[in-house]
Amino acid sequence: MKKLIIYSILGVMLLSVTSCYKADNWDAPSVRVHGRVIDSYTGENLLSSQNDWSIRIWERSWTASEPTNQNLPVKQDGSYNNSKLFAGTYDMLPYGGPFWPVTDTVKNVAFNGTTEQDFTVTPYLQLLDFETRLEGTNLFMSCRLKAPIRTGLPNLVEVKPFLSLTTFCGAGANSNIDIGEYSNKRIQINKSWQDEVGDSETSNVYTIGPLPVKAGYTYYVRLGANVNDANRKYNYTEIVRVDVP
């Protein structure tokens, strides 16, 4: 009797699970789009941070209503990649990053199989001559700012240090060490380029430190600087590995 009950319960449970199974009449999204975001000054990929900003896409082959945008996050190396999209035609726009606004949306890109689409952007700022220096367990970082286009440049906001214990380093990186000892050392400028630097294209050296670091640890560090546009994202230096003896 007991066995019978157990078996019937098992049977019912089995049924209840299998009954959920039904093949979807729509294929899983499988189309890939990828590409690079290129810095117009260097020709290299834009120095970015994981999860700082995105490529916006709008699916135009959907016509039943106005499509809202999807976002493809740009990675630290300045590339983006998404392999789980539905096939169709899309508009694409690099949006909300640390560069002069891109106004020409790339229209009607066909996503079908694998699509490669690169974008070229003009960063607000370049961070030059990045140097790191250790004094015992205090880290110093320095760089100069360069603004090739200064007409209409929003005010400078700040130069900020980023330290991480992984190779991911920057404002959007989860492993960014966000403590007062570091963030309080940022240099807040909040002036126009003219008031802060003058007529020159390149600023004097900004040095940030001392930043207390721990002996025996390996840090990945960089500096970022931003301007007061709507998004206030950072232009970065490259990431440098610092081994604290």
Partner: peptide, 9 residues
Amino acid sequence: ESLGFKATE
């Protein structure tokens, strides 16, 4: 105006 939204938004 100080937010700079007008350029892109």
